[in-house]
Write a protein that binds this DNA or RNA. Structure first.
Lengths: 370, 370
DNA sequence: CTGAAAGCGCTTACAG
DNA sequence: CTGAAAGCGCTTACAG
């Protein structure tokens, strides 16, 4: 027999104000209220720290929480009107150390502001599903960290825009339709060249800075600008031998390039690598061939990872300022919540920092004229 | 003026069966049903692929979904009775590469089974809040990855047990009250010693394998057992100089230890390091002092990270079998969902795999007698 | 084959 | 100061 609604409500009401013995696990405010001997409203008000409650009531509820470990169902809370307090984080992969470092910082900063971070890895298959998943959980914002297929990324951004979900791209420079926070790679290269030039270097070897990526173009622009500023011609000062080898493992690639450069008569005195791994591969290879670093040649990495400390001398590298990047990303994203999406997405550049270590030093006299 | 419930319902009903123009963003089945011109029930049935629907109805709904990009609110779905399809993942930190690799595999496997992974980092402050957070989101299971403060971990496990939430500890060996999946570190060391012994080595240097951790004890037990099996006395064959230096950076620690060992007359011919970083620091230091690897000495790392490829020769190391670990963890956790928690938590050991590379080789004659 | 109604676990006006 | 009732967005018996 089904009870008429009114009768069912009666039944419920009757049992409300009788304290029950502690059940195994309490799963709802209703159960919990019965346990404390108060109404669900009273319990809810205590949990949300609303004013106008008797101290005795507050204590009673608090004690019961401590006893039972009751936690309100976040999904129900959200459904009732509270924001989901979730942020979607889409990462290129979880294997790139600098990407993971950014994720780590972002997670920490967002958690500190009460957000739960949902991490999704950009896997080949789930192109559309990824955004749907975030949307179904009613995330309040989405951050993309890393380098993505531009077309796919654009599609996802469009989906988020359509649904009015704030979003932000970190590091994938050259995404026109999304607000972006990215390292100023041009400035990084300018700093590197300035440092090496200051040490008397006039011939530069580029390692792994090639390919059809926006980030590569940005870096080359930086090198070009820095040289122009010093009255040097890019074509005459810069040598790259990337085309001679297939890039598989970074270390190995650096090693192979170093082998090529080592035997050249017109070997540059300074090398700028696409990342720390390539730089270290090259450095170790140069050293094993009897070349001294920085006596015979200087070498600079990129990302300033812990492995920079591994070699002797330690590797000069460019720090991405991950903490500052994450902070800016967090502030921008959270600032965009509950605000209309901006018409023109802005691009914020993060200033890199060159960390000078032992792998760079004054150019040798006899090579200074190149 | 407030409407009486019945009147309000009337008002709602009236607008139900008129198709409306497409709104900016559709946020509920009610809105969406209005848009399609069907009832909420019909829409829900299509979305859940229930039988007994006219094809025309199905098509109509599907088309509307494609047009609007409508996604049902996952929180509401859960509230109505469906499991949350969420798993909490508590990691020691996001900086340890092997920890992140495990997290990555786990996320992939769980995502493939339809679970959303909530990642929390074990930060000093939020001890209790971490579990509360997972509980409030009604996760269906929790995995701990890494090494934790045993007391805190035990407390958290107890909390989960009390609430009947399945849980699993990966890697933190020696947690009595929780089901555990962990690398068989003893077996790893046995394999290492067997390999080195097979190459004629009889004196072993331990680097960084010290301290009051269960994992250290497990490793030392493995070394001991392997030596005993070969009729060798641990005390006579094994040298450790960890006490001579403070462990800060792994590379640097390896370098410092190598420096100590290099000048010793009774230098071991084989070195076993706590991890790849320490091994590489030592290897580079030995080489820079003119010692040949593996000609003069062999060296073994642990974790089999990409940096093993970096040195010449490449580093022999122990692979943690992360994929297998993650698969077993996933299977165990998912198997425990909707089943009563076992009385006696089981410990599963993952067999490691020794990856032999160039840094290990036959011991020199003159040193073989040590 | 489809719709109206009840109910999941909360919170918040509204009444007392 | 506290409780009963409505309603968030869903799904699923129950009616038709």
């Amino acid at each position: 027999m089904r009870l008429a609604p009114a009768a069912a409500a009666q039944l419920k009401r009757r049992s409300v104000s009788r304290a029950a013995p502690r059940p195994a696990v309490i799963r709802s405010t209703a159960e919990f209220a019965r346990y404390v001997g108060l109404s669900r409203s009273a319990v809810s008000r205590v949990m949300n720290e609303q004013p106008g409650l008797r101290q005795a009531t507050i204590d009673r509820v608090r004690r019961a929480i401590a006893e039972t470990g009751f936690t309100p169902n976040a999904h129900a809370v959200h459904l009732r009107g509270k924001p989901s307090k979730m942020i979607g984080l889409c990462v290129e992969n979880l294997l790139t150390p600098s990407g993971v470092a950014k994720l780590s910082e972002l997670q920490e900063l967002l958690a500190a502001r009460g957000f739960t971070v949902l991490i999704e890895v950009d896997r080949a298959d789930g192109s559309r599903k990824l955004i749907e998943h975030f949307l179904s959980l009613r995330v309040q914002g989405v951050v993309f960290v890393g380098h993505f297929n531009p077309e796919l990324l654009g599609e996802r951004i469009a989906g988020l825009r359509r649904h009015g979900v704030p979003h932000l791209v970190v590091d994938h420079s050259g995404c026109a339709n999304a607000p972006t926070v990215t390292l100023d790679r041009g400035a990084a290269m300018e700093e590197v060249v300035a440092h090496l030039h200051g040490d008397g270097h006039r011939r530069f070897g580029l390692m792994g800075i090639s390919g059809a990526f926006q980030t590569v173009a940005d870096r080359l622009d930086g090198v070009r600008a820095a040289l122009r500023k010093r009255g040097l011609a890019f074509d005459r000062c810069v040598v790259a031998l990337d085309h001679l080898h297939v890039r598989t493992d970074h270390f190995e690639f650096g090693r192979l390039l170093a082998r090529e450069f080592a035997s050249r008569r017109d070997r540059p005195t300074a090398f700028i690598a696409v990342n720390d791994e390539t730089a270290i591969g090259a450095l170790l290879e140069f050293q094993s061939r009897g070349l001294r670093v920085p006596g015979d040649l200087s070498i600079v990495g990129f990302n300033n990872q812990t492995i920079c400390q591994m070699t002797t001398p330690a590797l000069t590298s460019v720090d991405q300022q991950i903490e500052r990047t994450a902070r800016m990303a967090t502030d921008l994203l959270i600032g965009a919540i509950d605000r209309p999406l901006p018409r023109l997405p802005a691009m914020r550049l993060i200033a890199p920092q060159l960390v000078v270590r032992g792998s760079t030093g004054p150019a040798q006299r006899r090579r200074a004229r190149g």
